[in-house]
Nucleic acid binder design. Structure first.
Lengths: 342, 342
DNA sequence: CTGAAAGCGCTTACAG
DNA sequence: CTGAAAGCGCTTACAG
């Protein structure tokens, strides 16, 4: 049996309350002498407080949930983007003595269960649709501190951090426009009124408006953000949209797939078609030619998420609005000036 | 205030003990009538049991820890390999009503703290050195069920799942030998007496013995498993080991880096030099030419880890030895017959 | 089939 | 600066 707080107390000849105060660093309530004595005993026994007991008594678990949609029953797919965030989150939380519980969410009701069951102090929602976040009500979440990453929901129950997706779409299109392209396809998953993809799309459209060009809506190409879907899309574009000279894709994997599809159809990149990806994932610089892409700062995004969470837990004032981080266009080898018609 | 078990009990006009039995599915102790009545009330209130209270009273947390080394203070780097495992683990555990706590481990002592604090029922150790696992003692881990992935430690406190790394190294080398190569470099991180890399190395050597060829130890090239380190290694090999006609690398990222280094030095792959990677990560098929590599089945590995854990938690007999999964060589574009000396 | 009671290991006013 | 006591929300023998 590992020692309990009571064991430590009786060995030190003090009350459990005093040991509790020492462990929790309540300086004001314990003399230096007894504190040192207790600390030595704690050390010697390798005493570790029971988090369940603590959580039960203090009504605070010091657990933050990381909630990720689990479409599939068998596996959460952690995108490279998600995986990059997880590591930073864990460390940052750990430094503040919080634990991270990872939870896949298959049905909306599971959010409530996840929060309530372990009495989470906070949770980070990663990769949820805005609609799901909109639907959250106080009765679902209690007063758990919630941070939604990459969300455009304005549900006040969740703080939001995201990259400037509108600027990202705009940057990508603008660069291509500047290179002389006009027949630019937009490739990405279906989107609704709000959300990351919608924002990138609007930014993309804005770039056309900026230079006074008109965009042909038939160049909107719906495709999942996977390499396989990209391959199909590339083939499709080559076959039925031969006038396209450039493509903006909403994810690097998609862009890479499109490159392959184009190649299979006999088109060269960037000779015949220029292409811009999104995220600056590892693959962006593994392909040949290296992918021009829109980069976001994942570490910064995670760091902000943690700060928002901790501020909220400490009762500090919350920001007025969502926190939006800058993005940057990384120009590599898949973009070139439009080839003048022969 | 969310309802407690007591609230449910008094509303149903029964004792807390009975509600507890219903919630825990103890069929034998409750009549169908009262069970249904209670379940309806539970449903209506959206009652969620407090996991801390449960954990405290039952001495079982139903939490499994996922312990990952955190060298860096700021971030756990989840390799693609690790990220692939995490998703499967979470779902499989969830299906059995376990929760997953993700914890980065910077100092050995943190293992104990992690296990004890939340009274973990089990833990999966991911990516630890054998030496760290060897060092685990009963007093550190109590009777927590432990599964070490990719470990070759024979510490009986941890069950082990791993791929057949020896076979992997052997397969890779054998294929190159069959293609006529003899001057084959082995590129990978420094290794000690045991461990994944050591096994691959031994397998590599075995392949030479299999065909009665002699390996020149100067062709052992130590490099971290990153693309950057690979680039350097590629440059180094081109400059100081010009006789090398093939390379086995212990990771895909390393192999890809080496390809770049070789290219920078004016060598072609697979024209001048063949190369085999390890893992079949995404990047393996993103590069040009596509990387020949040794693939392991991550889903299977995670699934076995969970099964070992659950078996142990259910008190079922443990396997006699470590579970070893098969690997396969995926031949793609980076391997070709040795070019006959001009 | 059901309930009363003790207890899991802490924290938190409150009193001194 | 320190302690006695109640309580957090469950589970678990035990008795009936």
């Amino acid at each position: 049996m590992p020692p309990t707080l009571k064991d430590i107390a009786s060995e030190a000849g003090v009350s459990p309350a005093t040991v509790s105060n020492v462990i929790n660093g309540v300086q004001a309530r314990v003399s230096t002498d007894t504190r040192d004595r207790i600390l030595r005993i704690v050390e010697r026994h390798g005493y570790v407080p029971s988090a369940s007991a603590r959580s039960l008594a203090a009504r605070s678990s010091r657990i933050v949930g990381l909630l990720v949609p689990a479409a599939d029953k068998d596996s959460l797919t952690l995108s490279p983007h998600t995986a990059g965030v997880v590591g930073t989150l864990e460390r940052a939380l750990r430094r503040h003595d919080y634990h991270l519980m990872l939870r896949g969410i298959a049905r909306p009701a599971e959010v409530t269960e996840a929060l309530r069951s372990w009495n989470l102090d906070g949770a980070v929602l990663l990769g949820f649709h805005d609609a799901d976040i909109d639907r959250l009500r106080r009765r679902h979440v209690g007063d758990v501190a919630l941070v939604a990453m990459d969300a455009y929901s304005d549900n006040p129950l969740a703080l939001a951090v995201r990259s400037d997706d509108h600027a990202g779409g705009r940057l990508a299109a603008r660069r291509l426009l500047d290179l002389g392209h006009r027949r630019i396809a937009f490739a990405g998953p279906a989107f609704s009124a709000t959300g990351v993809v919608r924002q990138r799309y609007e930014g993309f459209r804005q770039a056309f408006a900026d230079v006074g060009a008109v965009w042909d809506e038939r160049l909107h190409c719906v495709a999942d953000t996977t390499r396989t879907a990209g391959r199909d899309a590339g083939l499709r574009i080559a076959a039925s949209l031969p006038e396209v000279t450039a493509i903006v894709a909403t994810a690097d994997a998609l862009a890479v797939g499109i490159m392959e599809g184009l190649a299979a159809a006999g088109k060269t990149v960037p000779g015949d078609v220029s292409i811009v990806g999104y995220d600056d994932a590892d693959i962006a610089s593994f392909v040949t030619p290296k992918l021009t892409t829109v980069a976001q700062d994942l570490r910064a995004k995670s760091a902000v998420a943690v700060r928002l969470l901790l501020d909220r837990l400490a009762g500090r004032p919350r920001p007025e609005t969502a926190v939006t981080l800058e993005v940057a266009l990384i120009e590599r080898g898949t973009t070139a000036p439009v080839r003048r018609a022969a």
